[in-house]
Design a protein around this nucleic acid. Structure first.
Lengths: 295, 295
DNA sequence: CAATAAATTCCCATATTTAGAAATTTCATG
DNA sequence: CATGAAATTTCTAAATATGGGAATTTATTG
């Protein structure tokens, strides 16, 4: 197949070991956790330390994540044009609503939050950038899925609609109905489908090709997320999402008419890197392939 | 005498290639830039792509930084207790001053900004987290250096006091005088020493051991940085820095009395790693022993 | 649509890394 | 300050990655 250098995997295994919350490791702890042979592991540790990806606590001598990651990680963010494009708008949204603004994308079957502006209010709901959630049970995810290809949606469904709260949407039909609702309104709402106290309104962001690229919106603690307030929040979110879309070169689309579903469906499955990309003069046609296999 | 696996360096060389601003690379571009043998390079690229550190643009097929970096990079941030400890305080500072709040640490001879809360005002001065500046010519740097060991300070001086603007402090004596001033007042000010339009007030943050751990403060566009306003800003900054320090377990210290110099001097010898930066450096082979000139 | 150029993968002898244990150093404890 | 335990480095045969070119695939052009 394709053998990849084990040293690389060792390196990232070590770095990713921090993902379950532990913030300091001794060499022995790495060893126990990862089963890398000790001599090899020490070589890797030294390499990572030299490069600034690991550092040793001055006091304890234990390993911690280095700041080099912050540097490169932030690069990844800056280089994402959608983040740069929306920077000012997100801040404006926050100023206007005083709520936490977040920008999320669909990665795999999950939502990955890539940008956060925290609410200035003391009580706030925040997911740190880099955080992932299931897509089918958060507003950002539903906002994206509503305009994604059938293929992506069924992949999400196949991955399982696990129940988190009693509000969680757990059946295919309910989810499809919900997504249709989202398309009708142009935004998605979450009344605690993943966490009892999680609330949010998100709207989809489209790029120049008409595909849904992200979802932008706000996460609000239940205390401030009332039925009365929702319409105005939703309006802000929708307006800002459209503004970002247009800056990305998207043509404004009417909320319920053009579903976006078909365009997206045409370039559904994409694990093969040999996609027909040559068509710079050939824009993705809306092939009439409306296989509504739902129901 | 410690050979580190080249595969690891290849991997990070590739990832760090993005540091000079280019956000898409073809395999050939990596090859030209890094001189890694093609077959090896492809193996590395595949490994990085598999792990999510690189991804290929759907359109162009070119390589871009993946979001995995965001995840792990943010981990590094969350796991830095000073960031967590100060989270609320920084937000409060921002609410109170409406200016950009930043938290910086000294890494090597440079200041590394690790946390930023952007001003809500349209005109604002922001350094993205992960950004580095020289330490001797920014407020954050001076706030830290003022309480650092002689050893650290002379290392900064040896690294060179380059002139950026006509305000830049470029001589040893001037710098030492400035740092003494900082110690007297408990905060540092920058009136454009690095960039003509850069202004800031920063105060040092100390940890439980009494060492200076960071600097916190605000970066302000010149239009809003008046002599009249400075005292109140400085007061906010000092108060918040002290609050963070005390949360870190520091004993409150009088502004001019304890220098912190001696405590810090005792553990002067620190890993010298700021040799390599800016990405395009091939790893310099580490010599077996360090020239200890500290005595 | 064919021909050409470029990009990517495959192949294999050679050099390097790896794993495991032993030797050494560092740290904790009486 | 000596002793024992743990952590880290060193050492070597064996396994594996590496690099360079050839073969293949993919893009570009007339």
């Amino acid at each position: 197949m394709k053998p990849t250098p084990p040293a690389i995997h060792n390196a990232f295994d070590i770095l990713e070991a921090f993902q379950d919350g532990q913030r300091e490791f001794t060499a022995q702890e790495f060893h126990k956790k990862l089963n890398i042979s000790l001599s090899t592991q020490y070589r890797v540790l030294h390499a990572l330390e030299d490069r600034g990806y690991l550092r040793r606590d001055t006091q304890t001598g234990r390993y911690r994540l280095g700041f080099k990651f912050l540097q490169v990680g932030n690069l990844a963010l800056e280089q994402e044009e959608i983040v740069e494009t929306s920077r000012g708008i997100l801040q404006d949204m926050c100023d206007e609503t005083k709520e936490t603004i977040q920008l999320g994308i669909l990665e795999g079957v999950e939502v990955l939050y890539i940008k956060t502006i925290e609410s200035p209010l003391p009580l706030r709901y925040v997911l740190q950038p880099g955080f992932r959630t299931p897509s089918y049970c958060v507003a950002a995810g539903k906002a994206i899925l509503a305009y994604e290809s059938e293929d992506k949606i069924s992949r999400v469904i196949r991955a399982g609609l696990r129940r988190f709260t009693k509000k969680t949407i757990c059946t295919t039909t309910a989810l499809k109905r919900e997504l249709a609702d989202v398309r009708r309104g142009g935004y998605a709402v979450n009344w605690g489908e993943m966490r009892k106290s999680g609330r949010g309104v998100y709207a989809p962001v489209f790029d120049y090709s008409g595909r849904v690229a992200a979802a932008v919106g706000l996460s609000v603690p239940p205390e401030r997320f009332t039925h009365k307030r929702l319409p105005s929040l939703a309006e802000v979110v929708r307006r800002c999402a459209e503004e970002i879309s247009s800056r990305l070169g998207a043509v404004p689309l009417k909320t319920s008419a053009t579903t976006g579903e078909n365009e997206a469906a045409s370039l559904a499955e994409a694990p093969i890197r040999s996609k027909q990309r040559g068509g710079s003069n050939r824009k993705p046609e809306k092939s009439g392939r409306k296989n509504d296999t739902s129901g």
